[in-house]
Design a protein around this nucleic acid. Structure first.
Lengths: 340, 340
DNA sequence: CAAAAGAACGAAAACGGTTTCGTGTTAATA
DNA sequence: TATTAACACGAAACCGTTTTCGTTCTTTTG
């Protein structure tokens, strides 16, 4: 009892006209007489005719698909970006194909190659840590050389020419650090990851700049650098036991949560004794105890803008070689882990 | 300096052979002589020829795309499912098109219609709350009638014939409630949402069954039903102030976090005075203070299985009309919000 | 009343592949 | 030497559209 999808050919045969006539009639072409058009349109509606997307894609060389390649999806920030992309893309009639690189260079390459062979009109992506570590961007260069538009977000590189959109991580860290300094804090710890992640580096820079602008000496003993994976709770404990600090800036929520727990276990109060600020305003910040003052990255906005930039490039005829980098300003969301 | 994608036609013209010969040579067909094959393959490799996915899709009537329609993506459980789907799909050479219904019936319908016109080989989806409320599943029936395989997960309905995969929510709630009873709790509160969500209903049933099996009388005063959206903190406060309870089962993490906060503010200790268990073992459960004993739903496993079921149907020739429903067992993850 | 213009439709190419079914050439066989 | 089989390749149909360029028939115009 399968209702086979009906095609132009079926309609044409059934109504004894040519395929071209059917096609034109359904597009309300002036070429076709009112009578014929009505007849064809009625028939098409009756049998619920819908053109085949694949055939149209082949003809137009436009798929109306956007490829999104991200390192992970079980990740608050990336999901907000995807939501933003979806939101804008849908209003423009585009679908979103999501691929996960899983922080692996190889998977990133494979995914892009698959999609680049006609499946999508353009890419929106954030680099895997592995890629940033390898510092190899040939797969990105190849797609741009083929004329496929590419928008990089958050984890970007200046080694490839394309549109980019980032938040000003340095400014975010600067603002946060400044906020802590204004509270009267002087022994501000930083918990970050290895510097090969472009964002971590920028955040560290902002932290350092804020200290230097306020004549506070950098103390490398209260800067903790952790690998992205396999974060050991032990390392946290020893760090907080041996360090004399009155505030902590963390490059992500989880570091902040762990940090707050250690500090509380040491009998200190938040925010009276130690203030905390974390990057990435996600669920954890909101529901932490105390709730965490955070730097919001506006992922959804970022996704919307990325999609807008991409679709604009996809739909513009001219082969402009001008690329822009949009820089979004992060926002400090004050909660209970800092003194108001 | 655009490197245009090379096609069979280009290769054929360049090497002065026919398109068919090129096609066969690249597939290593026995029909073509060694010399010719080597020449063509070398040329193809040199110019990095890759067949156009769209053309192949049109010919084969197979897109190697899976459509995934979920209510939300900024949601831990759904993202773990998507990750599982991706993982399995990729090993089979499939790409994943993600569409968000945003809990809206209309968007769900629109998304499915778009994808059903040739863009995908099959659907994996979880119903929007709006759809479950409306109780209208014609859009699902239409795609199955067209012979497009469909796998429903988590939020399912028995009104449409297709493969399904759910966790045993009733069992999960039963296990959790039993655990609380075994701890010696007798005044066990339930915080849930409106029953039109299939999962909430099942969880409530499990809770009730556990009570009844253990001869504990149901007290409707300690059952709190909240709308999904716009959860008011006030409602929580009053509920916990007026209720005399010694344990709480929550159908999601956020309810649990809020609940724990209220309880602590009332000067009670967790788990000494009140135990907490929450559904959906996500970030919040893990990082809460105290960490939350939770019922894990194994989203990733669910995604993998869903993808496996779907792809098996997609690739099987025969039009079997036999559908299965897989039921996954949830697991209780014991943490610090219950007594060990 | 012949010629031009307009209306309504169809044939065919094109998008980029796959695949079936020839067909011409060479080598093996009787 | 005539016949046949094997080999290597090409023509063409096909997937489902869109679109250009005829073509036929009717109507208008000089």
């Amino acid at each position: 009892m399968l209702k086979q999808k009906i095609t132009l050919k079926h309609i044409a045969k059934e109504l004894d006209v040519s395929i071209s006539t059917v096609s034109k009639a359904l597009k309300n072409s002036e070429e076709i007489s009112r009578d014929t058009k009505e007849k064809i349109q009625a028939f098409a509606k009756l049998y619920n005719y819908k053109p085949n997307n694949i055939a149209i894609s082949l003809k137009n060389k436009r798929t109306k698909n956007i490829g999104v390649v991200i390192p992970d999806i079980v990740h608050h920030f990336f999901t907000t970006v995807v939501r933003g992309i979806e939101k804008y893309a849908n209003t423009k009639g585009y679908n979103v194909i999501v691929c996960l690189s899983d922080e692996s260079f190889d998977k990133e390459v494979i995914n892009m190659e698959m999609l680049a062979n006609g499946s999508i009109d353009g890419f929106i992506m954030s680099l895997s840590s592995d890629t940033q570590l390898k510092n190899d961007y040939n797969h990105l260069k190849e797609v741009t050389e083929q004329g496929i538009p590419l928008v990089l977000f958050d984890r970007v590189t200046n080694q490839v020419n394309c549109d980019k959109i980032v938040i000003d991580d340095q400014l975010g860290a600067y603002t946060a650090t400044k906020k802590l300094i204004d509270e009267g804090r002087r022994k501000i710890a930083l918990i970050t990851t290895d510097d090969y992640l472009s964002v971590s580096k920028a955040r560290t820079d902002g932290y350092l700049k804020a200290l230097s602008d306020n004549n506070i000496e950098v103390d490398n003993n209260i800067i903790l650098r952790l690998p992205t994976m396999g974060m050991e709770e032990e390392v946290f404990k020893t760090f907080f036991e041996k360090s004399d600090i009155d505030a902590v800036l963390c490059v992500n929520e989880i570091f902040a949560i762990y940090g707050m727990r250690c500090v509380k276990e040491n009998g200190l109060k938040i925010p009276e004794d130690v203030s905390f600020i974390g990057f990435t305003d996600g669920l954890l910040s909101k529901y932490a105890n105390p709730s965490l003052t955070a730097i919001a990255q506006h992922g959804e906005k970022m996704g919307e803008l990325a999609a807008e930039m991409l679709i604009q490039k996809v739909e513009s005829e001219k082969e402009e070689e001008t690329y822009q980098t949009k820089i979004l300003e992060p926002t400090l969301i004050e909660r209970d882990s800092t003194i108001n």
